[in-house]
């Protein structure tokens, strides 16, 4: 959306209800503008989808440390999908412990709710991406937490962690086909990237131990 001039301030003589109606009108115009942009340029949507997938894949594969992988996942969620609230959780120690390795926008209450249900979420998860209100079977647990989309880290036929997407940005009108592709990309690559980052950490630790032993 663009505005030719600004800032917008409610003039004193305009009633609150009228101002709210005007704001709604502006939002509708913005929505129509976006739709028309997509219609005018049919190649745009396809190009944007490919560009997002490329950027997402490259970002994930550039990340070497666990923290960097989590950061990449959160960046993909917030900047490419437009998710306002999300959490990245991983299981460790034969899935007995669950750690948050990244989150954005969640309030304390939501974080607590996810933390309390995290183990259950991971244990119940299958290898497929879950999208709420997608016509599939609703998941009562994910639904109760207000999760919009859920991407498991599926490795060796077990769920090693997950990304939980909560609210999208207000200008997002649900998940589109490009978002679904991005979620599939995350499902395919986020788990292996995290696993590789852990292996790298172990390898570095081993190298340090060897060096220390050699120095002695």
């Amino acid at each position: 959306m663009t505005l030719a001039s600004g800032p917008r301030q409610k003039p004193r003589h305009v009633r609150e209800t009228d101002y709210a109606r005007l704001e709604q009108h502006l939002r509708d115009l913005s929505m129509r503008y976006r739709q028309q942009c997509a219609e005018v340029s049919p190649g745009n949507a396809k190009y944007m989808a490919l560009a997002k997938l490329y950027a997402g894949a490259q970002r994930l594969h550039q990340a070497v440390k666990e923290g960097a992988v989590a950061e990449a996942i959160v960046e993909i969620g917030s900047n490419l999908i437009g998710c306002e609230q999300m959490a990245v959780i991983v299981a460790s120690g034969k899935r007995k412990n669950v750690d948050f390795i990244g989150s954005v926008g969640l309030n304390r209450k939501q974080l607590k709710a996810v933390r309390m249900s995290a183990r259950e979420i991971i244990e119940e998860a299958t290898g497929s991406v879950y999208i709420a209100n997608d016509g599939g079977k609703p998941d009562p647990l994910l639904q109760s937490l207000g999760i919009t989309a859920f991407v498991p880290f599926w490795l060796d036929y077990t769920t090693k962690g997950a990304i939980a997407f909560f609210d999208l940005l207000p200008q997002r009108n649900g998940l589109d086909s490009t978002d679904r592709e991005l979620l599939t990309l995350l499902r395919a690559y986020a788990g292996p990237c995290l696993s590789t980052s852990k292996q790298n950490r172990r390898r570095r630790l081993n190298e340090c131990h060897h060096e220390a032993a050699y120095d002695r």
């Binding site: 959306m1 663009t2 505005l3 600004g6 800032p7 917008r8 301030q9 704001e23 913005s30 976006r34 942009c37 997509a38 005018v40 340029s41 745009n44 190009y47 944007m48 560009a51 997002k52 917030s78 900047n79 490419l80 999908i81 437009g82 306002e84 940005l169 207000p170 200008q171 997002r172």
Partner: peptide, 27 residues
């Protein structure tokens, strides 16, 4: 990220000319 009037107003007050919201629409 948010195209709400409060954020937009702060942007214009800081001297920007325009704004776009995330996620970016290429066209």
């Amino acid at each position: 990220s948010r195209g709400e009037s409060r954020n937009v107003e702060e942007g214009f007050e800081s001297g920007c000319n325009d704004y776009v919201t995330k996620p970016i629409n290429g066209a």
